[in-house]
Computed example of a mutant assay.
Amino acid sequence: MSERTFLTVPEHVAIIMDGNGRWAKQRGLPRTMGHRKGVDAVRETVRAAGDVGIKYLTLFAFSSENWRRPETEVSDLLGLLKAFIRRDLADLHRQNVRVRVIGERNNLQSDILDLLIDAEQTTRNNTALTLVIAFNYGSRDEMARAMITLAQDVEAGRLRSQDITPALINARLDTAGIPDPDLIIRTSGEERLSNFLLWQAAYSEFIFMPEYWPDFTRELFYAALETYASRNRRFGGLVEKTAAAVGT
């Protein structure tokens, strides 16, 4: 039973969770406190997405560029990710949430990699919301890795170059089997994708919100969904394509 009725609900919502550090600075707190408060916003958003019937929620948790941040901040971010999985995995499993992780896995520390694999394996048969965690993720890197596999197949004679199609490229991306995002939300007032889902965002709707991620609430999420529902998505044509209506 959802708390709100929307004319349409996107099948897939992706979020760039931005502004943790600025939220902390505004309050005279260490940046790490902003990241910790941001985890609470993650939990609330996952629950809200499930409540209104969204099928896929992708969260940009840690980019491939985030390794350039100060070592102490990177360590805290990784610690928060590990704590979130250890603390919340059982609850997500009870909610029938499936966890998928996208991003480069080579050279990850074994303790982190094992946790990510365990989260995917534990929840692999769940059928409600799919929570996609973009970790060590960069869209250009993702596309380059996909191109390498296609080139290897061409070199080995398993594939002709003229047979490469957008659908075949889709199948080689980290998001294979996941529909493209209908809606991408970014918090903190920044208005760019920052190397996030560049291929998949071809026909996504964008909503940029001024609030910092730790202040992101269920009501702000609902406001974004209401804005999305008011838009006319034509996908390059003249006929409107809408998502399925949902009720309470």
Rank of each mutant, 00 (worst) to 15 (best):
S2I: 11
E3I: 15
R4E: 15
F6D: 03
E11N: 15
I15Y: 09
M17V: 06
D18R: 04
G19R: 01
G21F: 02
Q26H: 15
Q26F: 14
R27N: 10
L29R: 14
L29D: 10
R31C: 09
G38F: 03
V39G: 09
D40E: 15
A41F: 00
G50T: 00
V52N: 01
K55S: 15
L59C: 07
F60W: 14
S63G: 11
S64E: 07
N66S: 10
W67R: 11
R69H: 03
T72K: 14
S75K: 13
L78C: 02
L81F: 10
A83N: 15
I85S: 08
R86V: 03
A90E: 12
R94I: 14
N96G: 13
V97M: 08
R98M: 05
I102H: 02
R105P: 01
N107A: 13
Q109D: 14
D111H: 05
L113S: 02
D114F: 11
L115N: 03
D118W: 11
D118F: 10
E120F: 05
E120H: 03
Q121H: 14
T123F: 08
N125C: 10
N126R: 09
N126E: 08
T130V: 04
Y137P: 00
G138M: 00
G138E: 06
S139R: 01
D141W: 12
D141F: 12
E142H: 04
R145Y: 06
A146G: 07
M147K: 10
M147P: 07
I148Y: 13
I148F: 11
L150F: 05
Q152W: 08
E155H: 11
R158Y: 13
R158Q: 13
L159H: 04
L168M: 05
N170I: 04
N170K: 03
D174N: 05
T175M: 02
A176E: 05
G177F: 00
G177T: 06
I178E: 00
L183M: 01
I184L: 09
R186A: 12
T187F: 09
T187G: 06
S188F: 09
E191Q: 15
E191H: 14
R192F: 07
F196K: 01
F196C: 00
F196M: 04
L197S: 06
Q200C: 02
Y203A: 06
S204Q: 06
F206M: 11
F206A: 11
F206I: 08
I207P: 02
P210M: 05
E211K: 10
T217I: 01
R218A: 11
L220D: 07
L220E: 14
L225M: 06
E226G: 13
T227N: 15
Y228G: 03
S230V: 05
G236Y: 04
L238Y: 13
E240L: 11
T242M: 13
A243P: 01
A245M: 15
